[in-house]
Amino acid sequence: MAGAIAFNTDLLARQEKRERANILRLALPASLLVLILLFVPIGWLMSLSFLGADGGLSFENYTRIWTEGAYVAIFVTTFQVSLWVTLICVLLGYPVAYTLNLLPEKISNILMLAVLIPCWTSLLVRTYAWLVLLQRRGVVNSALIDLGLIDQPLQLVHNMAGTVIGMVHIMLPFLVLPLYAAMRAIDGNLLRAAGNLGASPSRAFRDIFLPLSAPGLIAGAMLVFVMSLGFYITPVILGGGKVQMISQRIEASVSLFPTWGPASALAVVLLILTAAFLLLSWIAVRKLTPVETEAQ
């Protein structure tokens, strides 16, 4: 009797195991696609990045990145643009998320549409709009002249300024959305308690609200920074060839060099940078999240 039961559970366990594997097979078509279009080519490119111009094993594609001035300049530009975009997004996004959080939820939900609508609009449409707005005789320049702030139209497009403006427009929702969610989760009673205990409003903000919103801020800012590193379309159109970022260099290398080595080395570096910064932000957010809220 006991043996029969043991046999049955064994059979059931095996059946269960087979069923699990079977059901997992449903993910096969999707996984195959990722495997063939992402893993295999990127793995292959990684190995090609270690081949020199003569076809032998070499690190020349990597040493070129930090010895040749042109490559160093591209990395400097990429970091510069990404840092500016992140900084401006934080400076504009924090007050917006803060204000939306102050307002009743009904009103802030409507205002939130203004943050979401751009997300639904094609990136090309928005880049085109900025091209129109920022040109020499565009709306922005004429408005600034009419207001008497400037005499001569400013060069706002086909340079770093245009690139940063266009990218901030695309990235700002990615900062505001997680930050707003984090702020909504903060318990208002904590601030009231601080006030009751004699803290000034600015002190309550600095000691309670700011640290509690920090994980959302860091997560959003890191997302903006990492996504900015890989930008291609906006710097090409709004930078007008004067702003060279990593992605443009990868594109140029593909058409410029007969071998894939130089382009793939850049691609590998971009991939590593992206992964490293994402990991960093994950660690930072974990460290900054108070233990109590984590347990909830």
Partner: peptide
């Protein structure tokens, strides 16, 4: 994790990988 990866990889890398494949 594998299936959501295309969301996290910069599109330029998907582009060059796909071009290659």
């Amino acid at each position: 994790g594998t299936l959501v990866l295309p969301l996290m990889v910069p599109s330029i890398l998907i582009a060059i990988g796909t071009f290659f494949a």
